[in-house]
């Protein structure tokens, strides 16, 4: 029995190595319970509808792998969920297929979700969180995050200027809709860095999204920037954490098709599956990120909705500008790196 299994496995490997089109359809996601929820809400439905057997892999951000696939012609992924500015860069440089929105349909989708090479799918709330046992009075907004007298203790933050500069301006009293106007000027950038200067010695940088949760739960840091989903999930597991719903920054993760994917004829079916309100509602109930289809909200119970970055919570939120970051990423990353190491 075992020998037969081994024989079959070997045969499968040989087949897979044979030609590119002989491999199974491959979906790359961010891993963790985020991808678990997507499997349940989307991949399994897609598999059932098409008869394909999707295999999954992990995507770690950036365009390096995808550019390598385009340059060498060895396309090993088909569908990938990327960040907004990566999508824009990759779309311009021909790393992703253009989408046929007439076939897919845009019914109910947020206008920001409909993009030439991608379909915005997951609305993420980027803000900060705290341990409810750490302070007698809960922090209310970004001003509190930068207030070392009122809320003493270390701060977790990602080691990148993206969103952090926006957070600093929000903490300095800039209105959410004026963020990029201010950040587009040299004075605005100076202002953001000056705000971070106030708590620079308290910073501890996180790399992976699981770190802020661990650090907050063990009182390793007092406050930390984080994604709403991670904190809500930890809260559901009974950890004493709370996400601050005030001026959070909203961005969208976007599904795209790798250029020259051998499975691109299934793209329309794939995007129909991930944009379907019922499927999106299922995803949001498993993983507390917002749906990009406005019709999905009606299918969600209020106790789920209160934890999502959409709905009532979106009222005083700011939208992250991918266009701004595509232009300014190099310059501001270099300045941030210089600032953070000094």
């Amino acid at each position: 029995m075992k020998a037969i299994q081994i024989l079959f496995t070997c045969a499968a490997i040989t087949c897979a190595a044979g030609t590119a089109s002989a491999r199974d359809v491959t979906i790359a996601g961010w891993g963790g319970n985020y991808q678990d929820a997507q499997r349940e809400a989307y991949f399994n439905v897609f598999a059932q509808k098409t008869g394909l057997k999707p295999i999954e892999t992990t995507y770690l951000g950036g365009l390096a792998e995808i550019k390598a696939m385009a340059d060498t012609g060895n396309v090993t992924w088909d569908f990938v969920i990327a960040g907004g500015n990566e999508l824009q860069l990759g779309c311009d440089e021909g790393l992703f297929e253009k989408l046929d929105w007439q076939a897919i349909g845009t019914d109910g989708l947020l206008p920001e979700a409909v993009q030439p090479c991608g379909s915005g799918n997951v609305v993420i709330g980027n803000g900060f969180a705290y341990n409810t046992e750490a302070f007698p009075q809960a922090p209310q907004d970004w001003k509190d995050f930068f207030d070392r007298e009122k809320f003493p203790g270390k701060r977790g933050a990602r080691n990148t200027p993206v969103m952090n500069l926006e957070f600093a301006l929000l903490g300095d009293g800039v209105a959410p809709d004026k963020l990029y106007e201010v950040l587009g000027t040299p004075e605005g950038v100076d202002r953001a860095f000056a705000q971070w200067d106030k708590i620079k010695d308290l910073l501890q940088y996180w790399e992976s999204g699981s770190q802020p949760v661990e650090w907050l739960a063990t009182n390793n840091v007092a406050l930390s920037t984080t994604y709403n989903g991670r904190i809500i999930m930890a809260k559901r597991e009974g950890k004493p954490l709370e996400f601050v719903w005030k001026n959070h920054l909203v961005n969208m993760d976007v599904w795209a098709v790798i250029a020259n994917s051998p499975y691109k004829q299934y793209a329309t079916e794939f995007f129909k599956t991930i944009n379907d309100p019922a499927n999106q509602a299922k995803f949001s109930s498993l993983m507390p990120y917002g749906p990009s289809n406005t019709k999905a909200a009606a299918l969600l119970p209020p106790d789920i909705q209160k934890d999502l970055p959409t709905g009532d919570n979106i009222k005083d939120a700011a939208f992250m500008s991918d266009a701004f970051w595509v232009d300014h990423m190099d310059e501001l990353t270099e300045r941030w790196n210089r600032w953070s190491t000094q």
Binding site: L60, G61, G62, L63, A64, K67, L89, N159, Q204, Y205, E207, M329, D330, T333, N337, S340, T341, Q342
Partner: peptide, 24 residues
């Protein structure tokens, strides 16, 4: 990358950043 702070990252860290993140 795993045990240092931002002031302890070595040149390879920035090389990896340019390859992976900024595609430069």
């Amino acid at each position: 990358a795993l045990t240092g702070g931002p002031g302890d990252q070595m040149l390879s860290y920035y090389i990896a950043e340019f390859i992976k993140k900024s595609l430069n």
